[in-house]
């Protein structure tokens, strides 16, 4: 759409650039305020939150880091997100491929159930889920939480991969089958490589969800030692209500890892969002 006519219209380009710049400043302003105030002493924050910091209070970060037990929370988030994703994507992929290749009544039923389940809000199942979690001993355990993520994330994962598995050409698999390869061999050596870009999409979408998820870990994990980053930050704010000097430093620590990840993987992530939405 960046048609030739646009490029020959410098005035309009300038106006649009100015509008975009103003919007960008508004979008970034909240982060700017959190960042500059996270290194101030408490009195300076109250006096003038807009002023550039006169001091650099590393103390805020040290106290925030220790009190929120940030490293532990980071480790928990990383563990829960990565293990959930590995299993979710692999199990979702084999199920999706099977549903495509063997479209019998059960595959069709399962697929429709997945579609219906995607509309169910989490809050509609969370109450009985607590009972189920207690029954299967999933409460207060990182592995238990992972099991719940596998269940909740399966519909969307399998649905997305189902849409993509349909485009995998059958001929390749058939010739391998005639050569006597087992089904699992065919899947791993032929289908999986072809699904690679879609697996990346699913991984990104689901990883953001699990990394940032708040309500489920709040309900499942009671032990401080199991806290994920959102829970640790929430707990910190509960303890230090509006104690902004430490709180803003802690917020910065919560924001940084995911923003760094985003900046490095930007193209990849945006492509994933587009691919995921067009299918969904």
């Amino acid at each position: 759409m960046s048609s030739a006519a646009d490029r020959y219209n410098p005035t309009r380009t300038l106006v649009l650039t100015v509008v975009a710049t103003i919007a960008a400043v508004i979008f970034l302003a909240p982060f700017y305020f959190v960042a500059i105030n996270s290194v101030k002493i408490y009195g300076d924050i109250l006096r003038n939150a807009a002023a550039f910091p006169r001091t650099f209070q590393v103390q805020n970060y040290i106290i925030g880091f220790r009190t929120s037990n940030f490293l532990r929370a980071f480790g928990n988030s990383l563990f829960i997100t990565s293990i959930s994703i590995v299993f979710m994507v692999f199990l979702g992929a084999i199920a999706a491929w099977r549903m495509v290749r063997r479209p019998h009544w059960f595959s069709k039923l399962l697929f429709s159930l997945f579609v219906v389940a995607m509309v169910i809000p989490f809050q509609s199942v969370m109450i009985p889920l607590m009972r189920i979690a207690r029954m299967f001993d999933l409460l207060n355990s990182r592995n238990g939480l992972i099991v719940i993520y596998l269940g909740l994330g399966m519909p969307f994962t399998a649905f997305l991969l189902h849409g993509f598995a349909r485009t995998v050409p059958l001929e390749l698999e058939e010739s391998a089958y005639l050569d006597g390869a087992s089904t699992i061999r065919i899947f791993v050596s032929i289908v999986l490589p072809l699904l690679k870009s879609m697996l990346a999409t699913v991984t990104i979408l689901q990883a953001f969800w699990i990394w940032n998820d708040f309500l489920l870990p709040l309900l499942i994990l009671f032990d401080d030692r199991l806290q994920t980053i959102p829970i640790a930050i929430f707990g910190f704010f509960g303890q230090y209500t509006d104690q902004w000097d430490y709180a803003l430093a802690t917020l910065m620590m919560g924001i940084t890892p995911i923003v760094v990840f985003f900046l490095f993987m930007q193209r990849f992530i945006i492509r994933g969002v587009i691919a995921g939405s067009l299918k969904g």
Partner: peptide, 21 residues
Amino acid sequence: AFLGPAVIFFTMIVVASFFLG
């Protein structure tokens, strides 16, 4: 082997919760 794991997790967490709810 291929559908089982997905079915088990999905049924145990989503379907069971839904009907129990």
